[in-house]
Design a protein around this nucleic acid. Structure first.
Lengths: 242, 242
DNA sequence: TTTTTTGATTTGTGATCACACTTGCATTGA
DNA sequence: TCAATGCAAGTGTGATCACAAATCAAAAAA
């Protein structure tokens, strides 16, 4: 068989078949744990065991231990001297530390994105605002999980536009670390229900449309500061009560 | 035996014995690979195999594969679709991307450190300048490895003073990613020999002593930009030649 | 000579096992 | 009654094996 003919034949096949992907079990475990962490499904200080997670995820211990190791290196989980691993506990210092880092890095990312985003990309992000209204329309059932996912998609759609392969993984790591912290804030907001996240996001989109990097940065800071300051106040009042 | 007596007895023993430490093999492998990466011992695009590293480090494959997984998640190494792992290749975009992130984050860290460092801590850092003169005195043998270690110690002694448990691991990750890139610059500087790193570090110490955060940030930016701009120029001239 | 095929070797992934350490609880002793 | 001891279940770590996929080189076909 000639080379050209063979290639042509392969191309025809490739046009019909969808790539099957080769995600490993370890990757799936890792993604699943990430999702749970960012979504605040684990509580701070909760201890995780390899065998326990392996049972819950219906695999063997091997993929789980490697996924845990990865999460520990990005500070999403914490290795105790006993060699057990837990979700990092919340402290006031950690809250301030995380918020400061997020303002610094995500602020820079959105400023870069502002100068780079095409109107096509802005339109995509703007379209995501609609989903919020849609969700609020049927507000009888508060779907916290979907809210978290939507919020994440919105932010990262913008961050990806900054075009930095270095900053984006750092932001992901920050979200991973923030997840368990803002867990309580997420549920509290969902209960309160009124002060709408979409409102903050609209301000961000407006700044992006105006190509005003400084305004975009400030709108973003207001958005991500909200759960942190809420949590901060809550912890301080709890401390003073003790 | 009474509790008090037992405790007292244990205290006496504890005063005589040094804690034995429980570092795992995996931790040692991870540290060793980190050291090699930051020191620029691996070249960009070099492929690493689990069994090859296990043989070189005289262990089994298990600790190595977990260490590699951790390094991949912090982008110090890269997983190819073939599932082999390599040191990330250098591109112009990546150089600029890394430098921008380092300026942003390390600049913030040193600005924070400036307001927090005690005169005691500054003295410690200042003392490290002496080692450079010492090393230059016997410049017959250029010890690149020691130079890298000394540079790392100097910077992280300052960064640790910023007191951010979030920023410091990020900086470590950035150094890990920069290591292979600035490898060529390190050796080139060591060959040139004249433009002294200590000179840049003296400017940093002076700014710290003056508690001038802005000056410290600028001095730091000048210091870390040097190898990157060197490398950038070198790559551009190489490109134009092709 | 160039291309394809075939087969052997190498490599990553996941499962299982052995071992050491920790933890929790019941037992023993004062 | 309470602390110390001893035992048993649980847990992380590292080693080894089986398997599938990738790689490379030699042989076969064009």
């Amino acid at each position: 068989m000639q080379k050209a003919a063979s290639d042509k034949n392969n191309e025809v096949i490739a046009a019909q078949l969808a790539p099957v992907g080769r995600e490993t079990v370890q990757d799936r475990v890792y993604s699943e744990l990430r999702r749970a962490l960012i979504g605040g499904l684990f509580e701070p200080s909760q201890v995780l065991t390899i065998r326990g997670l392996a049972d819950a995820l219906v695999t063997s211990t091997m993929p789980v231990r490697e996924a845990l190791g990865r999460l520990i290196t990005e500070k999403a989980l914490e290795a105790l001297p006993n060699r057990s691993v837990r979700v990092p506990p919340i402290t006031l210092e950690r809250i301030d530390d995380l918020l400061r880092a997020r303002i610094l890095i995500e602020g820079e990312a959105i400023a870069l994105a502002t100068t780079l985003m095409t109107s096509r990309q802005i339109a995509t992000v703007e379209a995501m605002l609609g989903e919020w209204d849609e969700m609020r329309a049927l507000k009888h059932k508060k779907d916290v999980d979907r809210e978290v996912t939507l919020n994440q998609s919105f932010h990262f759609e913008i961050y990806r536009a900054c075009g930095s392969a270095v900053l984006i993984p750092m932001i992901e790591s920050l979200w991973l670390q923030s997840g368990p912290c803002i867990r309580v804030a997420i549920y509290a907001f969902s209960d309160a229900g009124e002060v709408d996240t979409a409102q903050y996001h609209r301000r961000i989109v407006a700044a992006l449309s105006a190509q005003d990097a400084q305004a975009a940065r400030e709108a973003l800071v207001a958005d991500i500061s909200r759960p942190f300051t809420f949590l901060r106040n809550k912890m301080q009042s709890a401390d003073s009560k003790d």
